[in-house]
Structure formats: structure tokens, C-alpha cells
Simulated scan of single mutants.
Amino acid sequence: MLRIAVQSKGRLFEETMALLEESDIKIPSSKRILLVQSTNFPVEILFLRDDDIPQSVACGVADVGIVGENEFVERNEDAVIIKRLGFSKCRLSLAIPKDIEYAGLEWFEGKKIATSYPGILKRFMAKNNIKSDVHVITGSVEIAPGIQLADAIFDIVSSGSTLVSNRLKEVEVVMKSEAVLIGNKELSQEKRDILDEILFRVDAVQAAEDKKYVLMNAPTDKLKEIIEALPGIKSPTVMPLAQDGWSSIHTVLDEKCFWEIIGKLKSLGAQGILVLPIEKMII
């Protein structure tokens, strides 16, 4: 049995549970239960505060955990990053009142900075030879300059709307963060085998993200030009149709370039273009 530590609430919780569901790891939806076992896979989910996950993994209370990279780096626990998961992306940035002119990092010399991430901030300032007064706040960091508690803040930024609403501007990005799968360094072989199967499923789910399966009919004499226009994973599948002079082409397209490619295909004579979603993709 592999124990996975997961954030108990919030956006990271929702995206983590969605990933497990897409990987066909069924977790009963029980509220106020600390530990829940999967009904179809040898894993159990331990629900914790995000800042408790790195320590729980490092000391073996949980075998692996899914947590924001920012929390993992801040806690500096003896665990390893196994995989970057690509969701819950954000950045840790320094921000100051928007009306203040900013000339560079030296502005922070001697300034009081409010943050919930003192470890990351102190290491960054030491690296850049800046001496500042770090003031630790556990919540609502963004209001600190407005109530004269601090000159600046160091906090998570996603869209930036919270900064704008508090009349702040982002001036330095210290690190970028996303959800990561972290693991204990002393996993048994049995637990590693379970983890490998989870990683295989997660890879298949993530490989299918933003991908479309496309089928089309095309004039056989245009096949070479059409295939050259396709940026698919590998060479597309081509099959002859019952009607002479026509072929069926099957391929996978990235959604971000989909409409541009479809336009080219139509101009080359492709017809009956069928677009299907992809749930899983084994590469």
C-alpha cells in the first residue's frame, strides 16, 4: 500500500483529485476523514495542510505527496521531487506600492518585507547581498503595505489581480512554482512498483492534454502535401478508401495549432474532417 499526502482543500486539492480520477484511481468522497483508501488501487490518501506535506513525506508518515513547489522549497525537507505535474502554476514575487519608482533590487536594502515564505526570501536576498527586514505573516500578506506594516511584500502571484486591488505592482519574480510529486528517499521496492504504475497512468493522462484525434478524407494525389502540413507526433496513418483516388488520414494534433492546420488541410482538398477528444495517450 502506497500512502499519498494530498492538500486537504483548495485549488491544488481539486486538481490533484481530478488527476487521480482521470488515472482511474478511485477515492471515496468522504468529508472530515484524514485517511481514505482507494477502492480499486493499492493506495491510500492522507489529507493534510499543504505546509505539513513536505515534512510528512520526509519523515515517512506518507510515502509520497503532491504539493506546491513553493511549499516544498520553503520547508527544505529531506525529500525528492519525483515529477513536475504541470498544474497549479504560480510564481513567488516581490511587490511594492504601485506609485513608488523602482530602480532595481537595491531598493529593498533596509526595507521591511512581509511574507509567508521567509526561507525562500532570505536565501534570495543573501544571494544578492541585500539586507532587509523580513516580517513573517501567515495570511493576507498583500495588505501589509497599505496598513504601514511593511514596505513591500513577497508572496504568491497567479493572475496578479490581488496585487492590483491592493495598489501593488510586481517588480521581481524570485521563483516559479507548480504542483510537484515528492517522495521519501527510502521507498521499498513494493511501493516503488506501485508508484511506477501511478506515474505510467499520469503520463498517459498528461500526454493527452490539449490533443485532438483528427480523421479526414483526402485526394490521394495530395497525400504528400497534406502529410507535410501535419505536425503530428509521428507519421500519420493512411488508408485507401473504397472510392478510387481517395484516402483516409488519421493523426493527432495539438489544440493550440489546430485551427491553423485545419485551414491548410482544407485548402489542400481534405474533406469530412472529424475531430475527437483524447482521454489517454501512451507514447
Rank of each mutant, 00 (worst) to 15 (best):
V6F: 02
K9W: 05
R11D: 15
E21Y: 13
E21H: 14
I27N: 04
I33Y: 14
L34Y: 08
L46H: 01
R49W: 08
R49S: 14
D50G: 12
D52P: 01
I53F: 06
I53L: 06
S56W: 01
A58I: 01
C59A: 04
V61H: 12
A62W: 02
E74Q: 08
R75L: 12
R75I: 08
V80A: 15
V80Q: 15
I81F: 00
I81S: 03
K83E: 15
K89A: 14
C90S: 15
L92S: 09
L94Y: 02
L94R: 03
P97L: 02
P97F: 03
I100M: 09
E101H: 08
E101N: 09
Y102H: 11
L105P: 03
E109C: 07
K111I: 01
L121K: 07
L121H: 08
K127T: 12
N129I: 02
G139H: 11
A144F: 06
G146A: 11
Q148D: 15
D155N: 04
G160H: 08
L163C: 07
V164E: 15
E170K: 11
E170T: 04
V171K: 06
V173K: 10
K176H: 15
A179R: 09
L181N: 07
G183E: 09
K185T: 12
E186G: 07
E186T: 14
L187Y: 00
L187N: 01
E190P: 08
K191M: 09
K191I: 05
D193A: 12
L195K: 05
A204K: 12
A207N: 14
A208R: 09
E209S: 10
K211G: 05
V214L: 11
L215M: 13
M216Q: 12
D221I: 09
E225T: 04
T237M: 11
V238L: 08
M239H: 12
L241I: 06
L241M: 13
G245K: 07
S247E: 01
H250M: 12
V252S: 05
V252I: 15
L253R: 00
E260N: 13
I262G: 04
L265D: 02
K266L: 10
S267T: 06
A270T: 07
G272K: 00
G272H: 00
V275S: 10
